[in-house]
Design a protein around this nucleic acid. Structure first.
Lengths: 215, 215, 215, 215
DNA sequence: GATGAATGAGTGTTCATTCAT
DNA sequence: GATGAATGAACACTCATTCAT
């Protein structure tokens, strides 16, 4: 009847949260790995950030590395799929699709904790090449192909000038991805602040006016 | 990762001890820090890579952190100065200057070990905010201003359309810097290889045709 | 291995809690302690082997150590009593009594899980001196006296030559006990297999012909 | 000139003992592993017993298990070889050779730290089957064959009655080995003390008079 | 009674740093 | 100057034990 009947049992040490735990731990790990790096993050810290003790982390993840892998798996693939679906169903112009993709990148990645992933993968690529490879194959390459297909469509539709869709895709994505990396690393230390939205608008305008056919 | 990075004396951090130039140590450290991260690199490895023993590293650098600071200081400032001098003396068009800057970035940074620096700073920014701050102030901001001045000149000279030079500068630099980061992290793991030169050409063309005034 | 074995309350150590008989737990513990040692055995394993969960073990035994003590107490004393009764009622020759004792050792100890006890006690004597002491006083010494009495009787009856019954007892028992230890430790790893029965026959024959008076 | 010129440098933290270290560590490990078991022994304890700190142990042994393996390797093989050489060169009677072997077992094994090895191997056989196998193949089996060959020779020379040398060998060795195990485990806890020498004398006499041919 | 999620003390192992040689 | 044996603090991971359900 009352909305808080769950709280009738006092919040204590023995709360069971089997369902929620892994997600909480992964969130904590993402934040900390991204901030301090994999090696620089203590399992104890991850645990404390997730509101549990060290031992509990090991109930859900075999070891630190498994936690890292789970984190990337969990966080990354759904995003790619969402974007691919969006593109598949889109019927408007290539230019407007690019605009939407950039906007969504801003809303769903840059503004969320997900923006930590690219920085994390890049930072740890030397120590976890296999994981980096997974990310390249399942995120980067798919992203690249998505954007390339959009460009291609724009060329086919007569919207865009002739160009190599793969390279144009890389150029557009590079500053999008860099922005995520930047926001999660140096942005907060830079006293010359900027407006991410305006950044993306600028990028969009220049790129598009460079790509658009002038009739 | 020790939590007292910040407590180590900030004075004298930037000097190497002695006259001798343990450039090999710095080179080894750059390579290894970039590959494995600061925490993941053992002083022993740095030493061995430099052809000396562990103790010797400590003759020249007070500790691991000092080595990191020295590395960044040593490697970074000369580049910026070189670029600034180049711009100051340049008399041609803004467009051609941008082309030259991109080419030099490719030749002098991307193709050399120096490209490891941005990846390293980004990766370790959470653990070494002071160092990151130094890098931002002495490299990033100066680079941004350089590029912005070029754009500004282009607008003044009637070459370019009206735009916000600061944001355009950020857009151009973002994919340039990202390319360095990419080459030092994921590029070697990506089976879809690409030609960096063509990447920069594509970027240059699109950006420029987006910026150029059409008479 | 905690250093405070000795501090755990010595009273009540020998009792199982509750009426129910968690014989399966003790069986599981015997098997696992014997195989992996006390420290090397996880309570979780004991529980799983006994078909219950970890918590349940603690319903019946105060802690791991208490389980060990209960195990030894449970398993050991009945055997000694059975043997003592057998001897008390025996009326035949000393030689045939020895033969019977060896046979029974083979049947009731060597061939059963009980053979694990000596190996276990020996292995853990350093960590559980009190328990080892209990075993010595209640099993070893009583066994030694039993065998010594048989020898003595043999001497008295004129069957055996004059000898020190205590030492002869020790010699006979040493290979009997060793066989139990061997079977529970190295036997299965030795590719030079042997027949335990023939081993005991050989021992019996040699010892007896060495002991018997030649008229 | 003075005998203690080595002591002229004060005993301190920085003494280098590269040559001596491994042996000291192995000695400490043997004692502690035997007393507390492998799992129950802390590397810290081993180190302290050897007069060093934990880190130093890892300079010489890759890990705890490697230390265990090294210990067995180091300690065991030389003994077997010594015994085999002795037998090969022996020209006297089989009976006297057995007597010598028992005496040497007493002097060189039982009375020394080496007597800890059998107990240790037996205790840890479940956790280190490979090491146990090594011990069986290189020590036990060779010991068994040695003793069997002596018995065989005794039979050939007409000293001993017909019997199966392999089984007789096993019977004799079982109480010899057991004595080592006993001395390193329960002996010190047993208030019924005994004289090991007399034990072996008793064994020798009974066995021999059981084996000897009566003309 | 039984469960199993959670705890936290304990231990193996690593590695930056020191300093006698 | 250079070495490398030694140190010891730090951290990943384990597991006996607890207790809310």
């Amino acid at each position: 009847m009352s909305k808080n009947h769950k709280r009738s049992c006092p919040v204590g040490r023995w709360q069971r949260r089997k369902e929620a735990r892994p997600g909480e731990i992964i969130d904590a790990a993402l934040e900390l790995f991204c901030e301090k790096g994999f090696a620089g993050t203590r399992m104890d810290d991850v645990a404390r950030h997730a509101g549990v003790t060290k031992g509990t982390v090991y109930l859900y993840f075999e070891n630190k590395e498994a936690l890292f892998y789970a984190l990337v798996n969990e966080m990354v693939v759904p995003q790619v799929e969402r974007a691919e679906n969006m593109i598949a169903n889109y019927t408007g112009s290539a230019a407007s699709l690019i605009e939407i993709l950039i906007k969504q990148w801003h809303e769903n990645i840059i503004k969320t904790k997900l923006s930590g992933i690219p920085k994390l993968i890049i930072s740890e690529s030397g120590n976890f090449p296999e994981l980096a490879k997974f990310y390249i194959d399942n995120v980067i390459q798919r992203g690249r192909r998505m954007m390339a297909r959009v460009i291609e469509k724009g060329i086919e539709r007569g919207e865009f000038i002739k160009c190599d869709p793969d390279y144009v895709s890389r150029v557009i994505l590079s500053s999008m991805v860099f922005t995520a990396v930047w926001e999660r690393s140096l942005a907060s230390l830079d006293d010359e602040t900027y407006d991410v939205e305006k950044f993306f608008d600028t990028q969009f305008e220049i790129m598009l006016s460079g790509l658009k056919k002038t009739k």
